[in-house]
Design a protein around this nucleic acid. Sequence first.
DNA 1: CCGAGGATCATCT
DNA 2: GATGATCCTCGGT
Length: 181
Amino acid sequence: MTKNYLDVLRTDAVTAAQGLLGWELYNRVNGQLVGGQIIETEAYTQEDPACHTYRGQTSRNAPMFSAAGTVYIYFTYGMHWCMNLVTGSEGHGEAVLLRGLQPLQGIETMRQNRNAAVDKNLCNGPAKLVQALGIDPAWTGKPLSETSLLLRPGERPKQIRTTARIGISEGREKLWRFTSQ
DNA sequence: CCGAGGATCATCT
DNA sequence: GATGATCCTCGGT
């Protein structure tokens, strides 16, 4: 039996962030797949000062308190959107931020969606991959299965590198950023 | 490759 | 009023 992505997401965010490496994320656009393999993730939990849910539920972070498999997309720096997959049990307020993909399919579409000088910059950042795949911010709060996204198993990473998370001021001591090696 | 600086605005204090 | 779970450009190494 093929493993379902919910089996990965129903664990805690730190475990799920590692388990998602190697999975393939695509958006279905005009009958073609646009996306690639997940190679960089970060975990965020409610007890963590860097997490959006650290100070409780608000209208923005409400999707993070939904069931595992819910999409949480937030707006930041006045211009960027980033996507998370909610993990754990309903009400936990935890998620995995998708930070990087290895482009595999629909590369020409990604080039058009992004205005990147080189292909290396298509999906190597959380806001870049959202733009490259054409992820719709209106999907925030929906289960992944109710969007046009596809998340399917891929080749497992040979090794996982564990480092501090990027762009945060608190919680730097937690080594919750994971990259495929 | 690396660091500095700016863009730009929703969200929360 | 301050701050971002970021990205791009530009200049230096």
